[in-house]
């Protein structure tokens, strides 16, 4: 088994829009919990991860320049991450296809965690 990170990407506006009414928001949560629950039940969930605030700061270069951002307007902001275990990249991708973020305007970036030879 190998480990993968799911990076959930979505714009803040799309996130808000996908939430909709309170009833819809609750449904959406149920769908997410079901998906997470299934990953866990099948032994794929290594770490559920954490959601991230949509704003922060970026420190860049030798000058250590601090800028605002990522900006809320960005369409594919990393909204959170989850670590899973799968046989290979193909299976990790397959599992990601069930992610409810795809029903909105979001995407899941699937990245293998580098294995140490030791």
């Amino acid at each position: 088994m190998s480990e993968f990170v799911y990076l959930f990407r979505i714009g803040a506006a799309a996130q808000r829009e996908a939430m909709g009414t309170p009833e819809h928001a609750q449904q959406s949560m149920r769908v997410w919990r079901d998906w997470m629950g299934e990953l866990e039940a099948k032994g794929h969930l290594k770490n559920p991860g954490q959601p991230l605030e949509p704003t922060g700061k970026t420190v860049r270069g030798k000058q250590k320049a601090v800028t605002d951002g990522p900006y809320v307007e960005v369409k594919d902001l990393v909204a959170g991450f989850t670590i899973i275990e799968a046989r290979d990249l193909a299976q990790a991708v397959d599992l990601a296809k069930g992610c409810p973020i795809l029903d909105g305007q979001g995407s899941v970036e699937v990245r293998p965690i580098m294995k140490s030879a030791m």
């Binding site: 939430m19 928001a25 959406s28 949560m29 919990r33 997470m36 959601p51 909204a79 989850t82």
Partner: peptide, 17 residues
């Protein structure tokens, strides 16, 4: 209120209710 729901949704969906 919308904002509170959004935070709940983001946190609960990964960390549980």
């Amino acid at each position: 209120v919308q904002d509170a729901f959004l935070r709940a949704l983001e946190i609960w969906k990964v960390r549980g209710i």
